[in-house]
């Protein structure tokens, strides 16, 4: 998979994770890259590991309620002409988030 273009180096330090952060399903052997949803390329898939709302816990809660719950699989569908917002496919539907929100969602991709 071409998912590895999404690198560890770009990861921003995430403020406190409000909800549950990581599931217990951290795979031991396959190469796992972690980062935020904002770093996914078009067509890339990832699994949500945690959600932090930056300064606002309500944002984190809302993102979980929208389907970005830990364990959910997300696909990056397309970017708007000016790179923001971005459409993601999660829980069987398409939703557009601005990058500011996408950065609140931590994901991991396994290759």
């Amino acid at each position: 998979m071409s998912v590895m273009s999404f690198t560890l180096g770009q990861r921003r330090p995430t403020p406190r994770a409000v909800q549950v952060t990581t599931g217990s399903a951290a795979p031991a052997i396959p190469a796992t890259a972690t980062g935020t949803l904002a770093e996914l390329d078009c067509g890339a898939r990832a699994r949500v590991t945690g959600v932090s709302g930056g300064a606002d816990p309500a944002t984190a809660r809302r993102l979980v309620d929208l389907g970005f719950a830990p364990g959910a699989e997300v696909e990056m569908v397309r970017r708007a002409p000016m790179a923001d917002p971005v459409v993601f496919r999660v829980a069987g539907y398409d939703i557009a988030l601005r990058r500011m929100q996408a950065r609140c969602i931590q994901v991991s991709t396994t290759s």
């Binding site: 606002d56 939703i95 929100q101």
Partner: peptide, 11 residues
Amino acid sequence: GPLLPFYMEMP
């Protein structure tokens, strides 16, 4: 109030 997160379902 806090900044509302932006999200928009694409039905």
